[in-house]
């Protein structure tokens, strides 16, 4: 029973953390351009100063 008192909050907390980060990433527009995100990794930023 003592184990439960510890494990259930941990399980729920992890779940909530996952849910929270998903909602955050959705609101931050991280799913707006999935194709572009995959390609941007290939852009070589060296020498083309921002």
């Amino acid at each position: 029973m003592n184990g439960l008192a510890f494990l259930i909050p941990v399980a729920l907390g992890l779940g909530l953390a996952g849910l929270g980060s998903f909602l955050w990433s959705l609101a931050a527009g991280q799913y707006e351009d999935l194709d572009g995100a995959a390609l941007r990794i290939l852009i070589d930023d060296d020498g083309a100063g921002e």
């Binding site: 990794i41 852009i43 921002e50």
Partner: peptide, 13 residues
Amino acid sequence: CAGCIAKIERGLA
């Protein structure tokens, strides 16, 4: 492609 993205974003800057 990635090249197009870079070209446009850098070209317009």
